[in-house]
Design a protein around this nucleic acid. Structure first.
Length: 576
DNA sequence: ACCCCGACTTAGGAGGTTCTAA
DNA sequence: TTAGAACCTCCTAAGTCGGGGT
């Protein structure tokens, strides 16, 4: 099986008695889905059938009592222009409708949707009054919030019907959940960070834009009435069920399976197996790049320094990006001189590199890192005679780096280091932080702390919750109250009948303290991303068995579904 | 050798739902 | 019973990486 052990025989036993004789039956179960044999290289399925994507509802025109005004005068907009006006009006409370780039992009695209007459009238966004449309939208949101239980239930049932019809497909022998079966509705593009295309109109997708992928033998999904698909193809070397090209970046969007599917689970498992393989040769690879730091070839030295960062700091590879098409963000290979500052001496350490750049999703990476002298000297060399905006690694790109890595180990790429370092860190931290004698709450705190160490390594940040300070204060107050209550109880009522009560108070207090600590430490850290994408679930499952914490305490339902393969196969002695 | 793009994973936020404690 | 926090699901943007074409 996937732990490298012989394939396990899955069985259940049942005991009956017959005339006081015990009879034991063994039932041999078929192999788990993730133990079925695979297809030849490149083939992802034999049979694929589905109902096609679900399209968002058509635009509903504004009611007659809601108006748009231009320059103080009432203007009845054409349907197309009105729909796009509503997109803007809906977002009026959001700060990016005040941003220059957003407004300019929006206005330019909106004008494209206008009729000739509208275009010649409406020339200035500042003179547009979306007030009534905005108010109508807010009223709708409010009304939705105030729906009765019955109304909410009706909505829920309607949604469930859509899921039942469009949310599943048949892939080989299995009914599988589809991850995103809905076509993305039109709206205004909201990029992350300072995105040059923010505010542009994301257009409505028609069936004529959509490519369907299914097997030849399957019944072809029926397009909405009066429409046809762009294309129906039968490509079993890919996993997507439908695709379309999006108009902002011109990239392809896909409808794919849910994470709990066999296909995705198998891929996930493979990813962690590659990372485990890196574990067995990481020492050699580290020796290699330490040697390469002294290479006569500048390109080799740059590769070595980049690898040092990727390994030590879990930086992303850093592919080059087209300027002006996306926010200005970088990864390791695309770092520029302006993103690092060298300090011979800083806070009592020598050879410190100060990183300050925007990474994926425009999340800031800020870190001061002591490095070995050879790396430090190389960096100085790379920065000589360069402008702040120049590439730090001018003789390196992700392609060259990955080609080198795959020559060291099959399947090795830059991102494997992130997976490997994340998982090995979790395993080490769990070993270090968990005490067998702790109670479940304390063990969970240890787990969260180990998870947190990884999230910090991978720079998984979140905006602090809006009400964080307030809720923290509330929690502290509660702790104080509980503490007082406890003291009070102990001081005045020590007698045998109240010991239970004291014990209960103590437990409650401890739980709250643990909770407060956990929450404070978690203020700006997002644990979910690493849990879902970087941490080999077998480490967590083995830990939960070892320390006797139910797996439900660390994985919720959808996480348990996603990691079903790991929950099924992992024994307490698993080592990453 | 390089570039472009297709396919897939990784990412944080919005918003809805459930839980908890007063 | 209710408000607010915690949890969870959905959404879709933004990365990685390899293969094919030039």
């Amino acid at each position: 099986n996937r732990q490298g052990k012989p394939l396990s025989l899955r069985w259940r036993a049942a005991i009956f008695t017959f005339s006081n004789l015990p009879l034991i039956f063994f039932i041999v179960l078929p192999p788990a889905r993730w133990e079925e044999k695979k297809y030849e290289d490149g083939v992802k399925w034999r049979f694929l059938e589905h109902n096609g994507p679900y399209f968002p509802p058509d635009y509903q025109p504004l009611p007659d009592n809601v108006h748009f005004y231009y320059d103080g005068k009432k203007v009845k907009l054409s349907l197309a222009a009105e729909e796009v006006a509503l997109f803007f009006a809906q977002m009026l409370d959001h700060e990016y409708t005040t941003k220059k780039v957003f407004r300019e992009n929006y206005f330019k695209d909106w004008r494209k949707e206008m009729t000739h007459e509208e275009r010649s009238l409406i020339k200035n966004l500042d003179k547009c009054d979306f007030g009534e449309i905005h108010a109508m939208h807010k009223a709708k949101v409010e009304a939705r919030k105030n729906m009765t239980k019955e109304e909410k239930l009706a909505v829920k049932e309607a949604n469930q019907k859509i899921v039942d019809e469009y949310g599943f497909c048949l892939l080989d022998h299995h009914k599988e959940r589809i991850g995103n079966f809905k076509i993305e509705p039109p709206g205004l593009f909201r990029g992350r960070g300072e995105h040059p295309k923010q505010g542009m109109l994301k257009k409505r997708i028609q069936p004529e834009d959509v490519i369907i992928n299914c097997s030849k033998e399957a019944s072809i999904p029926v397009p909405p009435a009066g429409h046809h698909w762009k294309e129906v193809r039968h490509d079993n070397t890919v996993t997507w069920l439908a695709s379309w090209t999006e108009n902002i970046q011109g990239s392809i969007k896909y409808i794919m399976l849910n994470a709990n599917s066999k296909l995705k689970g198998e891929k996930d498992w493979e990813k962690y197996e590659v990372a485990r393989k890196l574990k067995s040769c990481v020492d050699d690879i580290r020796n290699q790049y330490h040697q390469d730091l002294k290479s006569k070839q500048m390109g080799t030295r740059q590769r070595a320094v980049a690898l040092y960062f990727i390994d030590k700091l879990a930086l992303r590879a850093g592919n080059e990006k087209e300027e002006g098409e996306t926010a200005d963000t970088v990864g390791c290979c695309s770092l520029r001189v302006e993103h690092i500052t060298l300090h011979e001496q800083l806070d009592g350490s020598e050879c410190v590199v100060e990183f300050d750049f925007l990474g994926k999703d425009s999340i800031r990476y800020y870190n001061k890192v002591p490095v070995i002298r050879k790396v430090f000297k190389n960096l100085k060399l790379f920065m000589e005679n360069k402008q702040p905006g120049d590439d730090l690694f001018d003789r390196l790109n992700t392609n060259m780096l990955n080609k080198h890595l795959s020559s060291l180990m099959p399947g090795l790429t830059a991102k494997v280091f992130r997976t490997y370092n994340a998982s090995i860190t979790l395993q080490q931290q769990l070993k270090e932080l968990t005490n067998k004698s702790d109670n479940v709450a304390e063990k969970l705190l240890s787990y969260n702390r180990a998870n947190r160490a990884v999230a910090i390594l991978c720079n998984h940040q979140r905006a602090p919750p809006k009400t964080f300070d307030q809720s923290m204060a509330n929690l502290q107050a509660k702790v104080r109250t509980a503490l007082l209550g406890l003291l009070h109880t102990v001081a005045y009522h020590i007698n045998i009948y109240l010991r239970m009560e004291v014990k209960r108070c103590e437990e409650q207090l401890l739980k709250m303290e643990v909770q407060a600590t956990d929450r404070e430490e978690n203020k700006q850290i997002a644990l979910g991303t690493s849990k879902l994408n970087y941490l080999d679930p077998r480490i967590s499952v083995a830990w939960s068995k070892n320390v006797e914490v139910p797996v439900e305490k660390i994985y919720n339902k959808s996480q348990r579904d996603k990691f079903a393969w790991a929950i099924d196969m992992t024994e307490a002695d698993f080592e990453f």
